[in-house]
């Protein structure tokens, strides 16, 4: 841990300390971010599932990377900060990995989440048509309280 405000330098083109970027550099990054935003909104309009996933979430990751690297200057920050943030993200992956088998799935070894299955079924049935959904909002999703036709 040194006194200097910033790590000496990262290799390559970022050899200059971040604070010396001219304002125009940040405006350029902002421009790229806006283009990406437009892509992420237009992409899903095509209605192709792969394109939707890629444009929605792939581009979110790219945008996040640009913000973290250029606006938050993580590229020229102490390395341990990046490791710290990645560790936190990894912990969330661990959590989702451990919880998913019980919450994401609706049945497993010797158990069956009939309430969730019913909710899915009823929801899909109710949502078949498009448009007049103002009507079904108030109805609570059916669940355990009303017995299901599970098997």
């Amino acid at each position: 841990m040194s006194d200097t405000a910033h790590a000496p330098a990262a290799p390559g083109s970022h050899a200059v300390a971040h604070a010396s970027h001219p304002d125009s550099f940040y405006v350029k990054i902002w421009g790229v971010l806006l283009v990406l935003l437009v892509v992420s909104v237009v992409g899903p309009e095509l209605g192709i599932r792969v394109v939707t996933l890629f444009t929605a979430f792939g581009i979110a990751v790219v945008k996040a990377y640009l913000v973290i690297k250029n606006f938050m200057h993580l590229g020229v920050e102490k390395k341990y900060v990046a490791y710290l943030l990645l560790t936190m993200l990894a912990l969330m992956v661990v959590m989702v990995g451990g919880v998913g088998p019980d919450v994401l799935r609706h049945q497993g070894t010797n158990w069956d989440n009939v309430a969730a299955k019913k909710a899915v079924e009823a929801g899909l049935k109710a949502g078949g048509g498009h448009g007049e959904h103002g009507a079904d909002h108030g109805a609570p999703a059916p669940g355990a309280a009303s017995p299901g036709e599970a098997h």
């Binding site: 919450v103 994401l104 799935r105 609706h106 969730a116 909710a119 899915v120 079924e121 009823a122 929801g123 899909l124 109710a126 949502g127 498009h130 959904h133």
Partner: peptide, 10 residues
């Protein structure tokens, strides 16, 4: 786990 949420998120 809830594909029917698409009907809400629309």
């Amino acid at each position: 786990g809830h594909p029917e949420w698409a009907n809400q998120s629309m």
